[in-house]
Design a protein around this nucleic acid. Structure first.
Length: 303
RNA sequence: GGCUCGGUGGCCAAGUGGUAAGGCAUGAGUCUGCAAAACUCUUAUACGUGGGUUCGAUUCCCACCCGAGCCU
């Protein structure tokens, strides 16, 4: 039995992933390369309801009748994690595949994508708020020393300065009373990974144009409404980028100029970080045009 | 016109008579339940200009230029 096919569309923010995914899905249907295709979003902010304009969530109209999954599946009041994402996305893929349709995983959150494509085996230890609070009190050195004691194997590979990771590792060890398990697993899918490349200048200019569009589209009102509906300023701050800076602007902490400047700068930095993650995957087919992508898809599905 | 304070790498900002912290930005990277996160490494010979004192000045003195404030 061979593996189910999965197409992955990735790239830095503002590179046009959503549009490409829809184009590919329609192409597959029109060319009768399969019964059809559906899109599964791989974006850590678009999973939340109400985060629309600021997260660049695709609109109903833009979907052009292509079904989309993993959008609006969680309340922004609670933290959504990779594990939840993995469970829901896998389920969506199964459903789509069962109908002989092609799933298209599309997004910019590298960790979410890899959780699916590499079939991460994530430790079955949910976050322990109380334990975390306790560990939080310790110095980074102490946390590392403790991990070295309890799980020398994990201690060897972990970043010893990264408190967040140290705490998570300790959490797993302390709850399971056994070492952090290996993450490695092979991909359960037959993959075609398409990456959109853009020069840094292109990305910067796209981000800037997009920012002005979003403001015109009512992004400030969206954030205002989120806060009115019970999202704390702190939470909005944690959501980052547009949500962070717009909420600071609404609170009167920063000027309009700074608002634009910060979103622009941090979005560009974010795009770079995304590329750093993607660059490690040598199987990605980097493309600059839709035509290239469609050709790859055709070959992939007819081979 | 007079007085005061200031002029340090792309930006902000310490500091010293023996050639200069830090932060941000930049560049590279890590990645086991917050990933738009967290973390690591990293560039640049930067002390407004011209003189003087000194073995030696970015640091002291003089003049000038520029900026901010105050005064008449």
């Amino acid at each position: 039995m061979h593996k189910p096919k999965l197409i992955v569309i990735l790239g830095p923010t503002a590179s046009g992933k959503s549009d490409l995914a829809v184009a590919i899905a329609r192409f597959i249907a029109h060319q009768k390369l399969a019964t059809g295709a559906e899109v599964i979003s791989a974006d850590s902010r678009q999973v939340y309801t109400g985060l629309d304009i600021g997260s660049g969530k695709i609109t109903q109209k833009e979907m052009r009748a292509i079904p989309h999954h993993l959008l609006n599946v969680a309340s922004p009041k609670r933290t959504f994690t990779v594990t939840q994402y993995q469970r829901l996305a896998k389920k969506a893929i199964r459903t789509i595949t069962k109908e002989n349709r092609i799933p298209i995983l599309c997004g910019g959150t590298g960790l979410y994508i890899d959780a699916i494509t590499h079939n991460y085996i994530l430790p079955a230890v949910p976050p322990q708020p109380l334990l975390r609070k306790e560990l939080e009190l310790q110095s980074t050195e102490m946390l590392f020393a403790q991990l070295e004691q309890l799980d020398p194997h994990r201690a060897r590979t972990i970043d010893r300065h990264n408190r967040r990771r140290l705490i998570r590792a300790l959490e797993i060890v302390l709850i399971t009373h056994s070492p952090v398990p290996e993450l490695k697993a092979s991909s359960p899918y037959d993959l075609l990974t398409i990456g959109i490349t853009r020069t840094q200048e292109e990305i910067a200019s796209l981000i800037e144009k997009r920012l002005h569009k979003r403001i015109k589209a009512g992004m400030l009102i969206e954030v205002e409404r989120l806060h009115a509906n019970g999202l704390s300023w702190k939470r909005l701050d944690d959501l980052g980028l547009e949500y962070r800076w717009v909420s600071r602007f609404l609170r009167g902490l920063i000027s309009k100029e700074l608002l634009l400047e910060k979103i622009l700068l941090e979005s560009i930095q974010y795009a770079k970080r995304q590329m750093t993650w993607f660059k490690r995957d040598k199987t990605i087919h980097w493309i600059t045009s839709e035509a290239e992508a469609l050709q790859l898809v055709k070959n992939f599905l007819t081979q």
